[in-house]
């Protein structure tokens, strides 16, 4: 009931959809190495450029109970369809065989550790799944740095400029003008050539270029609230400016902006990080980024080896869409709550 109401309010679907994509990303970034059977830097030299193994994936999906049922059916002597080459103990594979008789791949022998590469391998024999999972960590961590800078600078700047107007507001305007007039990538190139080609420097610069957008947005809202009755009333109640600004204006009126901008900066920084990594300015091998996985695939893509390009690209789209939907949905929800 509550869920239905949540979905029906504006932004409900976007928040749910975006939130679940982001959640998936978070799980893979945090629990990453425990999810895959291979390490991302483990090269399986016998399996270079192995295609995705959907079949193996499906065998995993068949539950224990399912295989029990299949075995029971076998014992009852119901004739199985298809070939009968494999021993009966392979319950899960039996099931597969019934469904997909025409499947041409040979079936692996059962082992303690399945050898299958679910999403295939790249041209060094690295497991794609492991690469993607490792890449998600390198997408989120730099993003967090960008958010830290963008919100850490943009939020207080916007609050102060909006609340006091006058000189702080003029300074913010000047700062925004300068930052917005510098091409972002040129700024990033200058910084990495002056310091070191480190992805975290890049993200800090990116965060800085996103400050104007955030602080101007916050300032414009705070400006309209600074003269309102509750501020005068809070002052009358004996609160000083800092408590009014942090408590009344930021926390009780505008804290949703923090989450909205967090999501939007994450989306933007993932885009920038993957772009730069593709251009080999960002994350460099042996570290893995979705961007440099795609970069590594550019020699093989046109020979029909789609998976090295497709999966990281899908991950990028999902991550950006997820964060964008989340931010967009939250902001629609905030507008709706305020209108009520």
């Amino acid at each position: 009931m509550a869920l239905r109401r949540f979905l029906q309010e504006p932004g409900g679907w976007r928040i749910t959809l975006g939130g679940s994509m982001v959640l998936l990303l978070l799980i893979s970034a945090i629990a990453g190495p425990h999810l895959t059977s291979y390490a991302h830097d483990e090269m399986d030299l016998e399996q270079i450029l192995a295609p995705p193994e959907w079949r193996w994936l499906r065998s995993v999906l068949v539950t224990e109970r399912g295989s029990e049922l299949l075995k029971a059916r076998d014992r009852a002597g119901i004739p199985k369809s298809g070939t009968d080459e494999l021993p009966d103990s392979e319950g899960g594979l039996d099931f597969l065989r019934m469904d997909e008789d025409s499947f041409s791949q040979p079936v692996e022998e059962p082992e303690a550790k399945p050898q299958g590469h679910i999403l295939g391998t790249d041209n060094n024999g690295r497991d794609m799944m492991a690469l993607l999972v490792a890449g998600s960590r390198n997408a989120l961590l730099p993003g967090l740095v960008a958010c830290l800078v963008a919100l850490g600078v943009g939020l207080p700047l916007g609050l102060i400029a909006g609340f006091y107007g006058g000189l702080p507001s003029a300074l913010l305007g000047g700062f925004s003008g300068v930052v917005l007039s510098l091409p972002r990538f040129v700024l990033i190139l200058v910084v990495i050539s002056a310091l070191a080609p480190n992805v975290y420097y890049i993200m800090a610069v990116l965060g800085l270029t996103l400050v104007p957008r955030i602080s101007e947005h916050i300032a414009s809202r705070v400006r309209s609230q600074a003269g309102s009755g509750f501020v005068t009333a809070a002052r009358e109640g004996g609160l000083d400016d800092i408590s009014i600004l942090t408590k009344h204006i930021f926390w009780y009126q505008n804290r949703a902006l923090l989450f909205i901008h967090f999501a939007l900066v994450m989306a933007e920084s993932i885009l920038v990080e993957t772009t730069l990594s593709y251009l080999q300015f960002g994350t460099k091998a042996p570290d893995v980024s979705w961007g440099n996985i795609i970069e590594g695939s550019r020699m093989t893509f046109f020979s029909g080896i789609y998976w090295i390009t497709f999966f990281p690209a899908a991950a990028i789209v999902m991550a950006i869409l997820g964060f964008f939907y989340l931010g967009d949905g939250l902001s629609a929800r905030m507008a709706y709550r305020e209108g009520k």
Binding site: S228, G229, F230, A233, A234, H248, Y252, Q253
Partner: peptide, 19 residues
Amino acid sequence: RKKIRMLFQHPEAVLNSGM
């Protein structure tokens, strides 16, 4: 400030809508 308090004209503006 505790000894002299004020009542304002528009109660809806005085109360913080988020609190």
